[in-house]
Amino acid sequence: MATVRLSFSPAPVHVRTARLVGVAVARRAGVAEELLDEVRLAIGEACTRAVALHNQYGLADLVTVEMSDSDSYAVRVIDHAPLEASVGLTKLPPDELADESLTDDALTTGVGFALLAGFVDDLVVRPVEDGSGTEVRMVWPVQRR
């Protein structure tokens, strides 16, 4: 099993780097070409969420992205924000999306989760095993060559 691990300080500018690396490893792992746009978007959303949580809690800790390709292509995005923060993952109904009372942050969080849930069939959001934080785990099938 090959693993690529990337850690970055929680700054928006690094999310693009994580997307680029994630797609490059996915392509090498054998993820179908037609799925790569979804891989790019999902990794970006998971990293954006992690960066936002670290900034919200004033955490300088690194965000980690771990990519592995055994029988499938699995990506784990790990943050270190307090666990209760991850509870805010809810999909918003259409009539609430343009509601005046909805804050920009709440809208972005809701839309981001909708994209993750919509584009990743195999998605798990769970507490990390050690310490505080959340792991977003996404899995895509690979084609063996």
Binding site: E45, A98, D104
Partner: peptide
């Protein structure tokens, strides 16, 4: 070429 939830949030904000 790429649009994420943050960009979508900006568009909704402009519409409001």
């Amino acid at each position: 070429e790429f649009l994420d939830s943050t960009g979508l949030g900006v568009l909704v904000g402009a519409m409001k």
